[in-house]
């Protein structure tokens, strides 16, 4: 896809920075909505959806970049965490009398905020355990990344099975207080929890950025994704890096799952699995192993999906993400931001 490379070259020549690209895109979107070519509301909702996808895709790309395999169970980690929060809300917190909802402008109550860190922790521990028990053994054996991916398919199925055994297949919901949508200018309506969702996503991304650029283990993670063999030979503790990669990845997936459950106001055992295509589309778009790319890719996938409903049957939204995925894989597998092989 030389168009993109040509754009990049041109951009480099006139010294365009990411900020310039961003402002350009924003301008184009505003113009298009003024001309009624696209509805701004869809773009905004797409960004909210994109925030949720981003939480998932950033974690997914970390694992893909460091451990070099497609973690098919990632979606089901989202599901598991969402249900763990449901459990914490309904059982221990409920019995402690902490049942309030409608915190500030949001539909959920502060108990959700109490439950969330636990789900993150449990997800991280579960991921590390699965790595030690399963994936590390396959790596030591020299199994190809396809076999490891296949194994993660088994893990995905098993995780969903656990969720279904414990909670059954019916739709569940976090205790919530119905709130009105917010009316914003330019005919834009956003759901009440939108600010929470995008806020959490932005804060988490910022935290990840700090972690990767300022902490020793974060830099080691970047180094390992960059060149695994060199990392080992340099003396980097690759087992430690692997552990942290899983912890971050699962932790972010956990947050994504809870955000999704809040946004959709429902939980289903298949919620994470259905999210896999948008997640992978975002990862490939942004370049495997690049969390910033995964964030950008997530926004693109989210917005494209929502905007497409102007012209296509909304039931086909998942196909849009898939189309993006397929096109990227065929034309530019290294993604928009990926520059290396």
């Amino acid at each position: 896809m030389d168009i993109l490379s040509k754009i990049k070259l041109l951009g480099n020549r006139i010294k365009l920075t990411p900020i310039h690209y961003f402002l350009l895109v924003v301008m184009v979107i505003i113009i298009l909505s003024f001309l009624s070519v696209i509805k701004l509301e869809l773009v905004v909702n797409g960004l909210i959806m994109g925030s949720i996808i981003a939480m998932g895709s950033m974690g997914l790309t970390l694992v893909y970049g460091n451990l070099k395999f497609a973690h098919i169970a990632h979606g089901d980690f989202m599901t598991l965490a969402a249900y763990i929060v449901l459990f914490i809300l309904m059982v221990p917190l409920h019995s402690m009398g902490l049942q309030s909802t409608g915190l500030g402008p949001f539909t959920f109550g502060y108990p959700l905020l109490l439950a969330l860190p636990f789900a993150v922790l449990i997800a991280a521990l579960a991921a590390i355990t699965l790595d030690v028990v399963i994936y590390r053994r396959l790596r030591d054996r020299g199994s190809s990344t396809v076999i490891i991916a296949m194994c993660s398919l088994g893990v995905a199925i098993a995780l969903r099975g656990i969720v279904q055994v414990i909670w059954g297949g019916d739709i569940e919901q976090y205790p919530r207080l119905s709130k009105l949508y917010y009316q914003l200018p330019m005919d834009v309506r956003i759901p009440p929890d939108a600010i929470f969702i995008t806020g959490v996503a932005l804060i988490s991304t910022f935290f990840l950025h700090l972690f990767l650029t300022k902490s020793k283990i974060g830099k080691a993670m970047r180094a390992t994704a960059d060149n695994t063999e060199l990392a080992r030979v340099t003396g980097i503790n690759t087992n430690l890096v692997t552990m942290w990669t899983w912890a971050l990845s699962a932790g972010f997936a956990a947050i994504a799952g809870v955000l999704l459950a809040v946004f959709q106001a429902q939980l289903l055992p298949s919620m994470g699995w259905s999210f896999l295509i948008p997640l992978f589309a975002a990862v490939i778009l942004g370049g495997i192993g690049n969390p910033y790319g995964a964030f950008l890719g997530a926004m693109i996938v989210g917005v494209s999906g929502e905007v497409s409903t102007q012209w296509i049957n909304p039931s086909y939204k998942p196909v849009i993400a898939f189309a993006i995925l397929a096109i990227m894989l065929l034309m530019r597998p290294q993604g928009i931001l990926g520059g290396k092989d």
Partner: peptide, 20 residues
């Protein structure tokens, strides 16, 4: 049936781990 879902997942993992 949900248990069987779990079981299928475990079967796949076990087959790969134990007897590739």
């Amino acid at each position: 049936p949900s248990t069987r879902l779990f079981m299928i997942g475990v079967l796949i993992v076990a087959a790969i781990l134990l007897k590739p």
